[in-house]
Nucleic acid binder design. Structure first.
Lengths: 104, 104
DNA sequence: ACAAGATATAAGTGTCAGCTTATATGTTGT
DNA sequence: ACAACATATAAGCTGACACTTATATCTTGT
């Protein structure tokens, strides 16, 4: 049942987009605001939700707050998906492609 | 963006539980009702949502409706999870090992 | 034909999540 | 010290959604 919070938190598109951007690189709240049409408090609230789920971590530096993704927190979701995605062959091919792309 | 509907539909715990039971085996709506505290219409509504997302399929037989899971519909979710959990270094190694073993 | 059964749809309701504006808290530079 | 800045928190509003009961639709057995 541990995946419940992850599903709930990641169900929101804005929150998913924030997480995705933070996987690429660490960013401040102001950085994150760019490209989103919501207010700064909304961003902060989403970050708090992601943080409560362990999906992002915060590093404070003066008046700035830098956030970065913690993909390991996806583990329960990965487990769930692995359990129920029984169509392995295609998935293996996709994983190979993915790893090839990342090796460069 | 294709994973959006999957996240939304699977965010509901009751719906996830229904899907999980239907992965194990095909069941009628009445069968599914057992173990849940919600009404029959609620079950039907959840099944309709799962069906719209392609996560379950229906087979009619007389006055019965038999549902079964279609795990392949998880593909976009699997893809998303793989994309972002691959940034988890240990998972990369695990996946590489897995693929090496499967190449033989 | 009709009653009982299985499921779906309709309509209404309450709750909650995400949004907003306003404000608080803490920090930096002058 | 104070103004500007970066972020967080508070409070209130609104829409979406999961639920309910009531009813419709279709099927089966007598």
């Amino acid at each position: 049942m541990i995946e419940a919070e992850l599903f709930r938190v990641l169900a929101d598109p804005t929150r998913r987009a924030l997480f995705e951007r933070l996987v690429a690189r660490e960013m401040s709240v102001s950085d994150l605001r760019e490209g989103f049409s919501v207010s700064q408090p909304a961003i902060s609230q989403h970050l708090a939700a992601l943080r409560a789920a362990g999906l992002v971590e915060e590093r404070r530096e003066g008046r700035f707050a830098y956030y970065r993704a913690n993909p390991e927190a996806l583990a329960p979701l990965v487990n769930w998906v692995d359990t129920y995605s029984t169509f392995w062959p295609k998935r293996i091919e996709r994983l190979k492609d993915l790893l090839r792309r990342m090796d460069q």
